[in-house]
Write a protein that binds this DNA or RNA. Structure first.
Length: 644
RNA sequence: GCCGAUAUAACUCAGUUGGUAGAGUAGCUGAUUUGUAAUCAGCCUGUCGGGGGUUCAAGUCCCUCUAUCGGCUCCA
């Protein structure tokens, strides 16, 4: 007999050679029906894996991430089985489970696949499920594995196996389809009750743009038909929050082919919104001792040669601007830092002048690849809420911590609760990608790690994601469709001070090199507004919104009173407008709701006589009549709370 | 940049097998003077993304460019 410990701590005895599925059956028939995979001593395994010794066991169902992963991973094999039987010449890459579903990278040779081919593949998948095909695990030697796949001409699989160690290689067979795979998998395909191929895309083999491009089929499967319908409905809902749609509906920004791709036009309401965000941040920064500066949109090419940006990105930038003078060359500025370094250099600095914090809402221009452009989140002209802090090495950690404070304050105020804090370090195996000495990199990386720990940030660490001049701490937030975008960023830089030969005189009367921190809490105004739109679905807090109220006169008889109300509210610091169209109140209410204006103020005879407004709150309804000054006090109080 | 798709009125979208474009919303005009999610009537709106080709004839078929969408790669 062996002892199996379950997640609740209970220990049960079973005969040696029992499987996880047997255990599930012994617990309940329902569990046995729903279990997808098992975790034995921390390792996720097939349900029919024979258990030979004492162990801990967790049974994974659809409600466990691991269960879902197993389900989708097996689904990827199902997709591949279907593709193989329909397109015998297809060569297979990899097919993992992802956050929502799974994909399989496949080389279809000369055949060009399009979404019109999806139904056929989906039908085939369903057919295979119906046939009751089982997934069978097989241990193979490296030699056998290589022979099997080279005979079939599966060059991608051969390449994968080449990198594996003998003795660790397993195959999974599902009918005629055999795949190199570590598993685990479902026992058979029968739990897969609903499936949909969602999209297709080109994907470079092993993520290398110099190698073959395979066709990636994205798909998702579910144990119930209803789950698929819900998922598709959720996607539809998410599309309504898309900042590109909301930005158009709310008249915040636009693009024009005539101006150029990736060059946003900020419309009046969008500009208002952006200015409010900037004012908000500028105020916070002032409290933290920042000084606001402004620098030109272009700079001499030599400036960027000094900074290293020209060598690193010159080829991928907007091309150099020539002047009538021979040999004189300028660039649209891709970064604000070189300009700020020049400001620092203008006068000799003493340790008493540090930290020197120079802030600028600086618009920069970068030639992003055409396929990369994406609404306001990826553009070719954008305004960074940039600042550069020049400080002594001793001040570095404290300054870094203060920047974290600013970012967290902003995220809290705007209710960005689900952010990811990512520490990006240098790839030690690829040092030629970076500038600066090892010693300086180590110092900078240590400073970031320590500051994050000191602030109690929950971070993830990515090696190889650093900027070319230094490591960074990035704050990422997801959009409506779950795509991650980098917003706030803090970067430590020992290199630019070196390149620009920046100095300060220390208390020892000797020259020293300052350290530089690049930081942008929003990241860029464009991207921040985009993510803010998707988070709020356009329901901005009162302090940010263009129209805090809209006055709806019952008829044109009350327009004069409406004007009076508006004036009084404006004097109290509120902003809004009057809907004096020749429409019924129902229509005006409807339109105001669609425009997401929080307070609708209905004014008619009663209100005029009593000096009140009838307040209707968006999504809530009629809140009754109120004195005008009571209403403005209410709004101002609400705004105060929002900014606490 | 690469793979696949899309592009019709200000917006959202119809438009059969090729026979020179339609609806709703918005806008304008008029009637109505309106009480918490759509008052009625009339009118206006197009280089069918740009260019080239096939054809007696192209919104529709082909080529090309541009932009957009979903990914890949990249992201100072």
């Amino acid at each position: 007999m062996i002892n199996i410990t379950l997640p609740d701590g209970s220990v049960k005895q079973y005969n040696e050679g029992v499987t996880s599925l047997d255990v599930a059956k012994s617990i309940s028939e329902g569990l046995a029906r729903n279990v997808l995979s098992a975790t034995i001593d921390g390792e996720i395994v097939d349900l029919n894996r024979v258990i030979t010794k004492d162990c801990s066991l967790k049974l994974n169902t659809w409600n466990d991430e691991d269960g879902k992963k197993t389900f989708w991973h097996s689904s990827a094999h199902l997709l591949a089985s279907a593709v193989q039987s329909l397109y015998p010449d297809a060569k297979f890459g990899i097919g993992p489970a992802i956050e929502n579903g799974f994909y399989y990278d496949i080389d279809f040779g000369d055949k060009v696949l399009s979404s019109e081919d999806f139904p056929k593949i989906e039908e085939k998948m369903k057919e295979i499920v119906k046939q009751g095909v089982k997934l069978v695990r097989k241990d193979v030697s490296k030699q056998e594995a290589l022979k099997y796949f080279s005979d079939k001409g599966e060059k991608y699989k051969v390449e994968l196996i080449d990198a594996l160690e003998d003795g660790t290689i397993t195959f999974y067979e599902s009918g005629d389809f055999v795949d190199l795979c570590r598993g685990p998998h479902l026992v058979d395909f029968s739990p897969i009750k609903a499936l949909k191929i969602t999209s297709l895309a080109g994907a470079y083999w092993r993520g290398d743009e110099h190698r073959e491009q395979l066709t990636r089929l994205y798909a998702i499967t579910f144990p119930k038909k209803k789950d698929l319908d819900e998922y598709l409905a959720l996607l539809e809902e998410a599309k309504k929050r898309d900042h590109r749609k909301l930005g158009k509906d709310m008249e915040l920004f636009a693009f024009s082919q005539n101006v150029g791709a990736g060059l946003p036009l900020w419309l009046p309401k969008g500009t208002d919104l952006r200015n409010r965000l900037q004012d908000f941040l500028a105020k916070v920064q002032k409290q933290y001792g920042y000084q606001q500066v402004m620098t030109p949109h272009i700079g001499n090419v030599n400036l960027y040669k000094t900074s290293g940006h020209y060598q690193k990105y010159g080829k991928d930038s907007f091309q150099v601007i020539k002047t009538p003078n021979e040999g004189e060359e300028y660039m649209l500025k891709p970064m604000n830092c070189p300009h700020h370094c020049e400001i620092y250099r203008l006068s000799p600095k003493s340790y008493k002048d540090l930290p020197c914090r120079l802030a600028e809402f600086g618009t920069v221009y970068r030639y992003e690849m055409s396929g990369e452009l994406h609404g306001l989140t990826r553009v070719r002209s954008f305004t960074q809420d940039d600042a550069h802090i020049f400080c002594t090495p001793e001040q570095l950690k404290e300054e870094f911590c203060k920047v974290i404070d600013i970012i967290l304050y902003i995220f809290r105020t705007l209710k960005f609760e689900d952010y990811i804090a990512q520490i990006s370090l240098r790839d030690p195996n690829n040092r030629e990608k970076y500038i600066g000495s090892d010693e300086v990199w180590e110092k900078a990386e240590r400073a970031i790690i320590e500051a994050s720990e000191e602030k109690g940030l929950k971070t993830i660490t990515e090696v190889g994601e650093a900027a070319f001049y230094g490591p960074k701490l990035d704050f990422m937030v997801k959009d409506a469709l779950g795509r991650k975008w980098q917003l706030g960023t803090i970067q430590v830089d020992y290199n630019l001070p070196e390149r620009f030969d920046l100095e300060y005189t220390g208390s020892d009367n000797l020259k020293h090199r300052p350290v530089m921190i690049h930081r942008a809490p929003f990241g860029s105004m464009e991207r921040f507004v985009a993510v803010l739109l998707e988070h709020t679905a356009g329901d901005f807090p009162l302090w940010l919104t263009s129209d805090q109220f809209i006055i709806l006169p019952i008829s044109e008889k009350y327009e004069d009173y409406a004007k009076q109300v508006k004036q009084q509210l404006e004097q109290a610091g509120l902003r809004g407008e009057i809907d004096n169209r020749n429409e019924k109140t129902g229509k005006k209410v409807r339109d105001a709701e669609i425009r997401k204006i929080k307070y609708m103020l209905i004014v008619g005879e009663k209100e005029q006589n009593e000096g009140t407004v009838s307040v209707r709150e968006k999504y809530v309804g009629d809140k009754g009549a109120m004195k005008i000054e009571d209403f403005s006090a209410l709004v101002n109080e609400e705004i105060k709370k929002e900014l606490e």
